[in-house]
């Protein structure tokens, strides 16, 4: 992106070693700027998920520091950690909705970080919050399902609810960990389109882990390739040719890494 340089996510010499000695991340240095649509690719086990989940500290890193919009999340705890997390929406492969709750309640749960425990527990969300939730649902085209229980929706609809949750959260960053891995090709395209639209219309910095390289090429502005806990490629989408992908994967691309012409 050419607009003014504003560092939103910064990794400084970040490493992660699991208790069993396996290295998840090896000395990562990375800067992501406002408005970027970054897609992280790599084989499973390459550390994509670890990288993404350490941004909002769902995973702890063992060395180095991660800075979100100028504040170190690594050194935050308690209320200040929650304050940083509030600005980061997360979308999961398995949607992670409360299945028995209504869609609206799931979306509103993105707002709890803004209010006192007492107020949220009593369900006293201000009108602006409810409107925000409706707008978010409208943006992903499932407003009519607001009072439906989440478990009655299809996978693609559920994933859109979780995008709406991140929107209602008024997140400045959206992290999406394999958001389309449980979806069929057609819904995959809808969900990815939603993410791109949000990124472009609202300028929300978006970091997505993907398995399919052709999806990465289609949607990303910047691609990061990971192998064995290291960043082995980082550049604009134009530079990420099929040959480069083969380098990242350490072997020629296989068919299951392409979503293909089914869409």
């Amino acid at each position: 992106m050419k607009v003014g340089i504003q560092k939103v996510i910064e990794f400084k010499n970040v490493s992660k070693t699991y208790p069993n000695g396996v290295k998840g991340l090896k000395n990562i240095n990375l800067t992501i700027e406002k408005g970027e649509f970054v897609v992280v690719v790599g084989l499973s086990g390459a550390g994509k998920s670890t990288l993404l989940r350490s941004i909002n500290r769902l995973n702890e890193v063992t060395e180095g520091e991660i800075v979100i919009a100028g504040k170190s999340i690594t050194n935050s705890s308690g209320a200040s950690l929650r304050r940083i997390r509030r600005d980061i929406g997360m979308i999961f492969q398995s949607f992670n909705l409360v299945k028995r709750s209504t869609v609206l309640r799931n979306v509103l749960s993105g707002r709890v970080g803004y209010h006192s425990t007492f107020r949220t527990v009593l369900g006293l969300f201000p009108n602006e919050d409810v409107n925000l939730a409706f707008e978010a649902l409208e943006r992903v085209n499932i407003l009519d399902k607001a009072y439906t229980r989440a478990d009655q929706l299809s996978g693609g609809q559920q994933q859109r609810v979780s995008i709406a949750r991140a929107l209602a959260q008024e997140a400045k960053i959206i992290l999406a960990d394999e958001p389309v891995a449980s979806l069929d090709p057609l819904t995959t395209k809808h969900v990815m389109d939603d993410l791109r639209r949000i990124n472009q219309e609202l300028g929300i910095t978006t970091v997505v882990n993907l398995h399919h390289v052709d999806l990465a090429q289609e949607y990303a502005t910047r691609i990061i390739g990971m192998r064995a806990g290291e960043i082995v490629f980082d550049g604009p989408v134009e530079e990420a040719t099929d040959d480069k992908f083969s380098e990242i994967y350490g072997r020629p691309l296989q068919n299951n890494e392409l979503l293909g012409a089914t869409v």
């Binding site: 909002n56 929650r82 940083i84 997360m90």
Partner: peptide, 18 residues
Amino acid sequence: PTEALMATGANRFQILWF
């Protein structure tokens, strides 16, 4: 869902409740 709530910046009690 617990993880998702934690990621939105909810505190322990809010995670429990939601």
